[in-house]
Structures are given as structure tokens and as C-alpha cells.
Simulated assay, not measured.
Amino acid sequence: MDFLEFVSTRQSDRAFDPARPVEKEKIERIVEAARLAPSACNAQPWHMIVVDDPQLKNRVADATSARVLGMNHFTKQAPVHIVLVEEKVNLTSGMGGWVKQKDYAQMDLGVIAAHIALAAHAEGLGSCILGWFNESKMRDILSIPDSKRVWLDIAIGYSVQPLRPKKRKPLEEVVSYNGYRNSIKK
């Protein structure tokens, strides 16, 4: 399948087969693909925590759930969670970010999250990138120092959710050529 077809079949899955564990070699290939992600000035400002112990994974899943809002109750079904923690950027990335007033580490964490989601899809797995969680609980559960930011939790497993049609804005609303909001003409 070509890349466009590949990404069109990737979705944020919210239903996993809780009885089907993910093979360790698949997780190893996913984190290797993530490790190879590009970053500003090659800073690689991330640390990945693979959570596959069932009891610990359930505690992490509890930290992502919000009963009052009815959010993320599916996360206990996923047999693996990959938690992304921000690390310090290198000097070049830090200086560049200060000069340009951009948080390159956050951008880099988005890139690595995309690599994880696409690598999981390539392995025949579903994933869902989660930004809604109790960060202090996550730090406590995973022994993450208070000085670190926990940015994302990516739930991974064998999806039991049917493929949904993608609801995206039309191309002409999100792309322009040779200037902002020019026509889509090439």
C-alpha cells in the first residue's frame, strides 16, 4: 500500500482486545522507529516509558480517565501504554528556541508521537494519543521526577474498532500555495 493509503487507514482507536497481548518484538520495533524520529538540532528531548505490566498499565489507564467527563474509559483495554516525558534540549535547540520564541521540545514530542502511532499501525496495531491525564498521578505511578513534564500517553493494542471514515476539513481550507490563503492553484 502506498503511504497515502496507509495513513488514511490509521485512526485513533478507542476499543482494543484486552485479552490479546502485544508481542514484545512489535513494541521494540515501534520504539526503535520513534527513537529515529527527527528533532530540532538533533536534541532528542524525550524519554519513552513503555508500560506493559498489567497492574501498572491499569494504574496508568486510571490516571487518563475522567469519570465526570466520561473521557478515556477505553484505556484499560489497551495492553501497552507508551508515556512520553520531555527531557532537556541541547544547547543549540535551546538557544534557537529562545531566539525564535518556539518550544522545539514540544514540537519534537509531537513528531515522535506521530512516529509511534504510524509504527504501531505498520505493526497491525491500533493506537490513541492521549493528552488528557492527571500528570501528577502519572509522575507518581511511573516514578517520574517532579521536574519533568509528562506530555503524552499513547495507548497501543489490537484494535477491535471498525475503520471510521475520516472527517477532515477540505484541502482548500487547510492548504495554500505561495502565500497564506491564496487559492489552491499550483
Rank of each mutant, 00 (worst) to 15 (best):
I129Y: 02
L152V: 05
A122P: 01
L130R: 06
V99Q: 12
G70V: 11
L152H: 13
V51G: 00
R181N: 08
D153K: 07
D53N: 15
G131K: 14
A61N: 05
G96I: 06
N182C: 06
V22Q: 05
V31A: 07
F6G: 00
R14L: 04
M107S: 06
L36Y: 12
L152S: 11
P54R: 13
L56Q: 10
M71G: 00
N134I: 05
G97V: 04
N90F: 06
I129Q: 07
T64Y: 09
I49A: 11
S183N: 12
I49E: 09
Y180C: 01
G126V: 01
G97P: 00
A15Q: 10
P162R: 13
I49F: 11
S65M: 12
M1D: 03
R20W: 02
V99N: 10
L36S: 10
Y180R: 14
A122R: 08
P79K: 13
D13N: 11
L142V: 08
E23Q: 15
G70T: 10
E135T: 13
E135A: 15
N90H: 09
K102Q: 10
T92G: 01
Q55F: 06
L142P: 01
I27H: 09
L118I: 04
L142G: 07
A119D: 01
P145Q: 11
A105L: 06
G70A: 12
R35L: 07
D108Y: 10
E172Y: 12
P162Y: 10
I116Y: 02
V22D: 03
D52W: 12
W151K: 15
G126A: 03
A78P: 00
T9K: 14
M71R: 13
K26G: 00
L142Y: 10
V60W: 10
I82R: 11
I144H: 09
L152R: 14
G179Y: 07
R168Q: 05
E135Q: 15
R168H: 06
I144Q: 09
S136M: 07
E87G: 01
L171Y: 13
Q161K: 12
D140K: 15
L118W: 08
K167L: 09
N42P: 00
K26D: 03
E172K: 15
M95I: 15
H115P: 00
R164T: 05
E28R: 14
